[in-house]
Design a protein around this nucleic acid. Structure first.
Lengths: 142, 142
DNA sequence: CGAAATTAGATTGTGCACAATTAATAAAGA
DNA sequence: TCTTTATTAATTGTGCACAATCTAATTTCG
């Protein structure tokens, strides 16, 4: 029965910490008028410049039910464009606009700022990220 | 600029893994007709039998905007009761019903089952939980 | 005591998340 | 070829999450 105590649950600190970390990003992202999931999309678009909805979904582990309305909101605020591919009309390609690309400048300091708010060393952070990434990857196929 | 690559983000694997872990619980919780946040509430009620909304919120790091409608749904499905305290009428006390308490029997195997689906050792799990809990605790004051 | 500050919960509005379904298109195979 | 199967997005509906605001009740303190 011990396993059914909240304090003995594996998953709860993961769930709570994830939300608190998002909350930590919030004041920084508010300056860019981005939510955390939108920030993740912009990270991808700053790096790749052209991705399909499907590709974004694969990277972020999100489906079209989440992405379609989110990308539409981001299109409305002028961060990106959505165009159905002519080669394969099932595909919708996402590009950052100029405004979207320029937003990267404002985002440069964010990771550093977040890190400074955490009472954790760089090496601890790195190993934690590695463990979580490995665990995430192990769930890939299911 | 490297810090702005998705793969170099600390927070992303936390965010993605948290959602995937919730997804892992889903088929198990479906048998009990619970969502993951509802399961967390039931864990608390199995242990304590009488908690205020405030206390549940403190434990789970959730506010009344999330809890009030969730607890109302759980009241409707007969898992718990909501009664305003007579001593302090600002307080709403939550009790599990008999049905709610009996649901614990069905939940007993869940932690074990989840663990068996993870390719991770008991000690790794324990240390990971410890790290995440410590990090969560360090964010407590903000 | 009595006004001001604090606290607990409810409400409203926005934005994810995701299951389930649908529609359109493309690819594969008999 | 033509039918079946798979793929990609969009849509619909439900349930969190949380900011902001509101109401009512309780504490605090001059």
């Amino acid at each position: 029965m011990d396993q059914l105590y909240l304090q003995n649950q594996l998953c709860f600190p993961l769930y709570a910490l994830s939300r608190q970390m998002t909350a930590l990003y919030k004041p920084h992202l508010k300056k860019l008028e981005l939510t955390y999931p939108q920030y993740l999309v912009m990270l991808l678009l700053w790096e790749h410049k052209n991705l399909s909805v499907k590709q974004i979904g694969c990277e972020l582990w999100l489906d079209s039910g989440t992405l379609t309305p989110m990308l539409k909101r981001m299109e409305e605020t002028g961060l990106l464009t959505r165009h159905r591919s002519t080669e394969d009309e099932r595909v919708v390609n996402i590009h950052p606009t100029k405004e979207g690309r320029l937003l990267q400048k404002k985002a440069i300091g964010i990771p550093e700022n977040i890190f400074s708010e955490l009472s954790i060393s760089h090496s601890e952070l790195k190993s934690l990220k590695k463990e979580l990434s490995a665990m995430l990857k192990s769930l890939e196929k299911k």
